[in-house]
């Protein structure tokens, strides 16, 4: 019994106290790191960075700092960190190989939040999908389409796609085309379009609008108006113009041509192509 007691005492003297001290350092260190992490979080949020970027940075810093701290504690306990580092590298490699696509999305997500081709609430077109950016997560970019559907696009797809950001500038150019009959009075048509543009409150004075004779088409002459509007007025202005100009042109007797199809119907069946004769069976 004395020998057993002595063994416990020796263990306590040699390893126990050291272990207790390292636990104390771990607690103090964890609390100190937490405070500094709070500070980093505070600075990042206050600096008005995008929320997704704040999340990325915080997660990245946390992983690096806590891994370093664990290695530091292992070192204090005289545990060989080179072996641990090797193990971490092997595990990282294995995980990396198995989730290559996932990691590619994460890496592209990092690129997206650092290069920032768009931000939350921007109206974008990503590879043909149009909508408002809801969130950029580690893996996906979430888009809310105009018909209120949530679309999750993998960040790797987003990064390799053509991105059109309609909210990048405050104003947009609206191109409107009006086709009228060749027999119309061109000056009258241009006057009608011009007064519709000048009367519309959403049309910006600067940059100024342009109106010109654009093209001779098969059955119509096309006039093109290019007006500048604020992003939020784009669609309403477009619809307003299309309706108002059409109504005014019709009221003024300006003919608007449209494709027509003539269908002939013969009651006696003459002119109809005869049905192919049925093949006779070879006997």
């Amino acid at each position: 019994m004395d020998e057993f007691g002595e063994r416990i005492l020796t263990f306590f003297e040699t390893s126990g106290v050291r272990f207790a001290m390292v636990v104390l350092i771990a607690v103090l260190g964890y609390k100190a790191i937490s405070k500094f992490m709070l500070l980093i979080k505070y600075r990042l949020i206050v600096s008005k960075l995008d929320n997704s970027l704040v999340n990325f940075v915080l997660t990245g810093v946390k992983v690096i700092v806590y891994t370093g701290f664990i290695l530091y504690l292992a070192n204090l306990l005289d545990i060989s960190t080179s072996g641990l580092m090797g193990a971490i590298s092997a595990v990282t490699l294995a995980i990396g190989l198995s989730i290559q696509n996932v990691l590619s999305s994460v890496a592209n997500g990092i690129m997206l939040v650092t290069t920032r081709p768009f931000k939350v609430n921007d109206f974008v077109d990503i590879g043909g999908i149009t909508g408002t950016v809801q969130e950029v997560t580690m893996m996906h970019t979430i888009i809310n389409t105009a018909d209120n559907q949530h679309v999750f696009i993998p960040n790797s797809t987003v990064y390799s796609s053509r991105i059109m950001n309609y909210s990048a500038n405050d104003i947009r150019r609206l191109v409107l085309e009006f086709g009228v009959d060749y027999s119309c009075d061109f000056d009258q048509v241009m006057g009608i379009i011009r007064s519709a543009i000048e009367a519309h409150p959403a049309v910006l004075k600067n940059p100024a609008y342009t109106l010109h004779y654009a093209a001779d088409k098969d059955s119509s002459v096309t006039f093109t108006a290019k007006v500048w509007v604020r992003n939020e007025d784009y669609w309403n202005t477009k619809w307003d113009f299309e309706e108002n100009v059409f109504r005014t042109l019709a009221a003024e007797g300006v003919e608007i041509p449209f494709p027509q199809i003539t269908v002939s119907y013969r009651q006696d069946g003459t002119g109809a192509r005869p049905l192919p004769a049925a093949k006779e069976d070879k006997k």
Partner: peptide
């Protein structure tokens, strides 16, 4: 053992106080 680890404890305690004050 205590004497060996005391400087580490002290350093982390100082970090904690600084962190607390900054926050």
């Amino acid at each position: 053992s205590i004497r060996e680890y005391l400087p580490y404890v002290f350093v982390w305690a100082v970090f904690l106080v600084i962190g607390y004050l900054l926050v």
